[in-house]
């Protein structure tokens, strides 16, 4: 089966990004496909490469980046939600005249259309939120 996944809460405060991660790992292990994960609301903050959690804690961003690298998952951060919350890629930082960008490896910024498209193209859409 082909799953689309939405993460709609930020990392560490909420369990949602962790639970979504465990779901995707389990789905892939069971032979399912997860072509894309869409990050919305505070979920966009999962994709910052500037978070530095304590060493004895999981690093949520690194877990997702590694999963994307190993399985070719498309990690999409909503641009409208990202701009409100200070998430910028290199191109967008330049366009907005900002002095830094912070998108982690494996993540990309794109539009809400990617969420709708995922709903159309997958067999099940699963949302992880509060």
């Amino acid at each position: 089966m082909k799953f689309g996944v939405v993460v709609s809460e930020g990392p560490y405060t909420h369990q949602a990004a962790d639970t979504a991660y465990h779901f995707v790992v389990a789905a892939l292990a069971a032979g399912h496909e997860v072509p894309r994960v869409f990050f919305y609301h505070d979920g966009v903050n999962v994709g910052t490469r500037l978070s530095v959690p304590p060493q004895d804690e999981r690093n949520i961003q690194e877990q997702w980046s590694a999963l994307a690298r190993e399985h070719g998952i498309d990690l999409v951060i909503c641009i409208a939600a990202a701009q409100r919350r200070g998430m910028l890629d290199e191109k967008e930082a330049e366009r907005q005249g900002k002095d830094a960008d912070n998108i982690a490896e494996g993540f990309r910024i794109s539009g809400l259309g990617q969420l709708i498209e995922m709903g159309i193209q997958t067999d099940r859409l699963v949302m992880f939120g509060d």
Partner: peptide, 19 residues
């Protein structure tokens, strides 16, 4: 919270997809 506003933003974008 921002959930309602950002939900409406999805609805408006999603309307272009003829679903």
């Amino acid at each position: 919270t921002i959930y309602a506003l950002e939900a409406l933003e999805v609805v408006l974008i999603g309307a272009a997809f003829d679903q």
